[in-house]
Structures are given as structure tokens and as C-alpha cells.
């Protein structure tokens, strides 16, 4: 019996504790895309009036490295965007005095839902809005050939205007066409976990005829010491195809 017990003990030790993380390391490929980072700033101060909100907005122009304007929630610099028509926000798809921008990375009011036992429920979101004054139109292509992140990255880098034409996308000038759908959130974990849908390729048709491809590559959800929540997108001006010329 002693032998049995000994064997049992050895087996117990031998079977477990075998995991090793180092083999997870990945070396990414650089495709030379333009990138832009916008920090939404996540307010984790329980005493703050804006606790739990993304309190910073960033207006950017494609091709420019620096932001056109930064807004801080509760400050004059902030522009309130609401997709909901209500007395306080009569200007649906509100316009702003800020000019010269293409995309705004911002927190906004997304919709209202009638909910049983609760009443009207306002849903806010953090996403990217387009400047409707600039006549930008956006089409969305869902790349579904592979779920592998490296394959998706190379497919985006290789995508040409000729490819885009085969997709027969619908283009919209709605302010929230990009919206918040480039990330999904899992609220069953704490803190909530954001997954960036980097397989959503956005095609932006500018009013000067330029066509950009853009996708989101990162949303730093981790509230480390600085509480930043940095969205990063990569984009490129697409070369016109010969047929188009």
C-alpha cells in the first residue's frame, strides 16, 4: 500500500503545473501604414462627476499627425454629440464650430430604448464620428476569410481600390457610420474587456475624390496608472486604379 501511496503522490506532482507562457511571443510585420492614436481618457475617480466616462475627445484630419482639436468633458472645449432627438439636444447630429476635421474620437449619446419596468433608457457609446460638413462617405467591409490576426493585417495592407470595387459596398454619410462597432465589449469580466474588430475595413470617400482605407488596430482598455484608453487606427490613401483614371 505504501508503494501505491507513493506512486499516487508522484503522479499528483507530475501531472500539474506544466504551463509555460514564453512560447506565446509573436513578432509583428510592419506594413508602413499611417497611424493615429486618440486617448479617450477613462475617468476612474469615484468622486468625479464623470466617473466611468471617457472624458476626452479628439478631432483628427486624415494625413495629419497632430490632432486638429482636443475636447475635455465638462469644459467649453467639449462638443456634445447626440444621436437622440430630445429637447436638450435639438440639433440632432449636432454640428460643431470646430472645422478642418474628418473624424472625431468621442463619447456620445447613441440611442434611447424603451425598457419594460424602467422607462426610457439612454445608451451612450464611445466611438468615431465623421464630419458631415465635409461630405465624407463611408463604406464598411467585413473581412471574414480568416480569423487569424496576422492574415487580417496583411489582407488590409494588400487591399487595393480595385478590390474595394468588387465588394459593392453601400456608402453612407451618416455621422455614426463608423460609430462604436469597431470594438465589442465583454461585460462579464471586470474591467470590461474590449476586443477590436480589426477585420472591419472602412473605406472613406472624401469630397475631393480621395479614397482612404482605415481600420482600428487597438483600443487600450487597460486602466493602468494613467487611466488612458487609447484607440489606434491605421489608414492609407488608396492609389486610384488605372480603370478609374
Amino acid at each position: 500500500m505504501k508503494k501505491v501511496l507513493f506512486a499516487f503522490a508522484v503522479a499528483s506532482l507530475g501531472l500539474g503545473f506544466t504551463s509555460c507562457d514564453d512560447d506565446e511571443k509573436i513578432t509583428p510585420i510592419d506594413y508602413g501604414m499611417k497611424t493615429f492614436e486618440a486617448d479617450y481618457m477613462y475617468d476612474t475617480d469615484e468622486e468625479s462627476a464623470y466617473y466611468g466616462n471617457h472624458t476626452q475627445q479628439t478631432f483628427m484630419k486624415l494625413g495629419e499627425e497632430e490632432a486638429v482639436h482636443m475636447g475635455v468633458m465638462g469644459d467649453d472645449s467639449w462638443t456634445d454629440f447626440s444621436m437622440v432627438a430630445d429637447p436638450e439636444h435639438e440639433d440632432y447630429n449636432i454640428s460643431t464650430n470646430i472645422t478642418g476635421w474628418d473624424l472625431a474620437f468621442t463619447h456620445y449619446t447613441a440611442m434611447q430604448v424603451e425598457y419594460p419596468g424602467y422607462g426610457l433608457y439612454t445608451v451612450t457609446a464611445s466611438g468615431v464620428l465623421i464630419n458631415t460638413e465635409e461630405g465624407i462617405e463611408v463604406g464598411v467591409y467585413d473581412y471574414t476569410d480568416s480569423e487569424d490576426i496576422t492574415t487580417i493585417s496583411s489582407a488590409f495592407a494588400d487591399m487595393t481600390l480595385a478590390d474595394v470595387e468588387t465588394y459593392n459596398l453601400e456608402y453612407s454619410s451618416d455621422i455614426a457610420t463608423i460609430g462604436y462597432g469597431w470594438k465589442t465589449v465583454d461585460t462579464s469580466v471586470t474591467p470590461a474587456l474590449y476586443t477590436v474588430n480589426s477585420n472591419k475595413f472602412y473605406i472613406l470617400k472624401m469630397n475631393n475624390g480621395d479614397v482612404y482605407k482605415l481600420r482600428f488596430v487597438s483600443f487600450q482598455t487597460f486602466n493602468g496608472a494613467d487611466q488612458s484608453r487609447i484607440a489606434e487606427c491605421e489608414y492609407a490613401l488608396m492609389e486610384p486604379t488605372e480603370a478609374a483614371e
Partner: peptide, 9 residues
């Protein structure tokens, strides 16, 4: 977690 984004976070 699964890989969350294209930067392998």
C-alpha cells in the same frame, strides 16, 4: 483573454 486587437494585446 483572447488576443484583443491587431497589436496582439
Amino acid at each position: 483573454s483572447d488576443i484583443l486587437d491587431a497589436k496582439y494585446n
